[in-house]
Design a protein around this nucleic acid. Sequence first.
DNA 1: GACGACTATCGAAAAAATCGATACTGCCCC
DNA 2: GGGGCAGTATCGATTTTTTCGATAGTCGTC
Lengths: 317, 317
Amino acid sequence: MRSGFGFDLRSLEIFVATLERGSQSAAAESLGLKQSSVSQSLANLEEALGVCLLDRRSRPLEPTTAGRFLYDRARRLLEEARGTRGELISGSFGKLHQVRLALVDSLATAVGRPLIAVIKRHTRDYTLTTGLSHMHGHALMTRHVDIIISDDRLEDYDGLERHPILAEPFVLVLPASWDGPADNLRWLARRLDFVRYAPQSLIGQAIERHLRLNRLELPARLHLDNTFAVLRLVDAGVGWTLTTPLCLHQAGLSGLRVAPLPIPALRRQLTLVSRRDELGGLPSQLARDARRLLEGDFLAELRRRHAWVAEAITIPR
Amino acid sequence: MRSGFGFDLRSLEIFVATLERGSQSAAAESLGLKQSSVSQSLANLEEALGVCLLDRRSRPLEPTTAGRFLYDRARRLLEEARGTRGELISGSFGKLHQVRLALVDSLATAVGRPLIAVIKRHTRDYTLTTGLSHMHGHALMTRHVDIIISDDRLEDYDGLERHPILAEPFVLVLPASWDGPADNLRWLARRLDFVRYAPQSLIGQAIERHLRLNRLELPARLHLDNTFAVLRLVDAGVGWTLTTPLCLHQAGLSGLRVAPLPIPALRRQLTLVSRRDELGGLPSQLARDARRLLEGDFLAELRRRHAWVAEAITIPR
DNA sequence: GACGACTATCGAAAAAATCGATACTGCCCC
DNA sequence: GGGGCAGTATCGATTTTTTCGATAGTCGTC
């Protein structure tokens, strides 16, 4: 047995049959083996696991505590293996057990929970992770996740399907207490610190690149790796930052002052990306639902609070 | 691979690694194999399952629909195998996945649902079956069930633990419309048919044996294999029968006339039986709960309705 | 203490998994 | 359009694992 588990399906079959038939000889017969093979297999199993599984003295054979436990798990594993085989050869595939979804933080807070509800209708189990966007692409390609929604469209890769979710402009965010002008970043940066996103994050990179393009060299004092931390500092009056309406929504800090960028516009696009044709209609459905949720929840509130920002947001379809 | 599944844990490992690494060569390296072995294993897998799993043309390698499905199941199987191994070698056994309980019909209706709640606190999953008692003993010994509650104490077998649940007398049951005497079965049987339990059932056998012992030869016209059918006929005025208070309670036919046996008493004992020391405290706890439920529900109602019968019932502890 | 029913052990045989070598495929690039 | 490249398939040889047959050991029963 080459697998590193200490057992494989065959040895579990033998073990289970032995307990159910009550003797090695009976198990051997029921499996079309000889008793010696059963004995060997059981000995190997105990050897490989380093655990005693059977009390050989009693008749019918009885499991030890560990054996009783393995019996339970083995039955389950074998049952699932049988089911899998059946579904495979009949071609009638059931629900997937697990769909793994990775979201940018800002979306996770806004629409994570309702999206999970949608996923649940398609699979038995799911995982949802958040994290830095540039990790998501890699995770998708190595199959550590199945679906990502982030600002990375992974244009370099083939075999993917992409569903745009949201395009939003970056805005300038200032402490509520700041009542000075907000139309010159260079000038602003001399009175109030620029609170930056850490350069590992895609959002941070996008901002830095845009600032460079617009020939703004601003002092690098504060680098924080998540939106909440960034906005918390701004809220505390420490400085100002650039971010997007969705991030603002996520942080839930309603007291901040929001102004248009005093430099050419920068936008980010959130896109749902998955491996093409692997999950049927689930990705497009999730995309549709994510848009609907953003529309109803986030955008509606934004219209009330900062109508001019809401104008600039695009939710496709 | 000797198991009849078309795959084993090893081939699943290889398949999963191939998809996750995106190529056979990479998978081979990650598993310490050569590419040719991976190719072989995948070919065997497809051969054994009779299904194409991979689209070999695309880079990184992509699964077919069947392949995507198998990937999902395989990850799960491997995950469970890993978990099982971990729990086994660390000795810290988790919950059992499944405990299988078999009850005599009459108990199932009376206390089945609350008992399930108790089981749920001890295992992830459970099954409950009912059926003829004499099947239960066999099922227990062949590990098709873990716990039985029936009128068969399986005295012939060792290695079992037994917890008495209830002892109850048989009673004579007549149609409500019958207002004649109920103190002579032979006489009764000439006016009204004796509705029997099928001789396959343990309860039927017990009754027949008792009648023989008391030299009663009654005509064999009606043989029904479950309490509900038996009592339904009695209720319809077709005949009379012998049964127990719990069976009466189960059938829920409140209009029937109940009388003491006009022959020496016959009792049945319901006992919870399980393989000794396999399930820790669960059997005794279930027994305790079953008694409590019978006491509170069944016996309390019986006291109101037929106090003289309630007297004759014993619930231990 | 012989018998029967079962299990352990061991070398041989059979069946796998794996390897090494090599041929094949599709793609990119000049 | 042909060579290089990265990956895959195939095949005989090799190693490892599984199974077998034979035999010896164990335990309980009569």
